[in-house]
Lab assay of single mutants.
Amino acid sequence: GVRVRALYDYDGQEQDELSFKAGDELTKLGEEDEQGWCRGRLDSGQLGLYPANYVEAI
């Protein structure tokens, strides 16, 4: 996976979405899909989806 850092807070709206705060680091686990979602893993171990444009590569 690729380490990325959140640029903005994001509150997951669905069960399969991650929630994070600006500045949090997570691991991107795949390329974004056509809707702009990426699969990732928080350092807590939680897996889920997040909007790709909310993070930057570290």
Rank of each mutant, 00 (worst) to 15 (best):
Q15I: 13
E56G: 06
L7G: 02
E25Y: 14
R5Y: 11
L26P: 00
G36H: 07
Q15S: 10
G48L: 02
V4Q: 07
V4Y: 14
N53A: 08
D9Q: 05
D11N: 14
E34K: 15
D16W: 09
E56Y: 05
L47K: 12
V2E: 15
G12W: 01
L49S: 11
L42Q: 05
A22D: 06
G12H: 07
A6Y: 00
L49F: 08
E17C: 15
E56A: 07
G40P: 00
Y8F: 10
Q13C: 10
A22L: 07
V2I: 15
D9P: 11
R5N: 02
L47Y: 14
Y8G: 03
G36W: 01
G45A: 03
G12I: 01
L7D: 03
L29G: 02
A22C: 06
A57F: 11
G30W: 07
E25D: 05
A57N: 01
V4N: 02
V2H: 09
V4P: 00
P51D: 03
E25P: 04
R39E: 15
L26S: 02
K28E: 12
A57I: 13
I58G: 10
R41D: 00
L26F: 15
G12T: 07
A6P: 00
D16S: 09
T27R: 05
G48T: 00
G40M: 01
Y50D: 00
G36R: 04
G40W: 00
Q46R: 12
P51K: 14
S19R: 08
F20R: 01
R5G: 03
V55G: 06
Q35Y: 14
E32V: 12
S19K: 06
G48P: 01
R3F: 05
A57P: 15
D43R: 08
D33W: 04
Y10G: 00
G45R: 03
L49M: 12
G23S: 05
Q35L: 14
Q15F: 11
Q13L: 09
C38T: 13
Y10H: 15
L49Y: 10
D33M: 07
Y50N: 01
E34L: 10
Y50W: 01
L42T: 13
C38R: 01
Y54H: 11
E31M: 09
Q15L: 10
K21Q: 08
T27H: 08
R41M: 08
A6S: 04
E31L: 09
K21N: 05
V55Y: 01
R5P: 00
G30A: 14
P51I: 06
E56Q: 09
L26A: 00
E56M: 09
S19P: 02
E14Y: 10
I58M: 08
F20P: 00
G30P: 05
C38E: 07
W37F: 12
L29T: 11
L26E: 01
E14V: 10
L18S: 00
N53T: 14
K28C: 10
W37K: 11
Y50C: 08
G1L: 02
E32K: 12
K21I: 09
L29S: 03
Y54M: 15
Y10T: 02
R39N: 08
V4L: 06
E17V: 14
R41Q: 15
P51M: 10
W37D: 05
G12L: 02
L18G: 01
V4E: 04
G30C: 14
E17R: 14
L49H: 15
A52T: 13
P51H: 07
A22W: 02
G1A: 08
G40L: 00
Q46K: 09
I58R: 02
G40N: 00
Y54F: 07
E17L: 12
Q15R: 11
C38P: 02
V55L: 03
W37R: 15
E25M: 12
A52N: 07
A52I: 09
D43I: 07
Y8E: 08
Y50M: 10
G45Y: 04
F20A: 01
S19I: 03
Y10W: 09
T27C: 12
C38Y: 02
E31F: 04
D33V: 11
A52R: 06
F20S: 00
Q15D: 08
L49D: 08
I58F: 13
K28R: 13
V2N: 15
P51R: 14
E56D: 06
N53Y: 03
Q46F: 10
A22G: 07
Q15V: 12
G23Y: 06
G1D: 03
D43W: 06
E25F: 12
W37G: 03
N53Q: 09
S19F: 06
G12Y: 01
Y8M: 06
R39G: 04
L7M: 13
L18M: 06
F20N: 00
Q13A: 13
G45K: 01
A6L: 00
V4K: 03
L47I: 15
C38N: 02
D24E: 15
E34R: 12
N53S: 12
I58Y: 07
V55S: 06
S19C: 08
D33A: 10
D43Y: 04
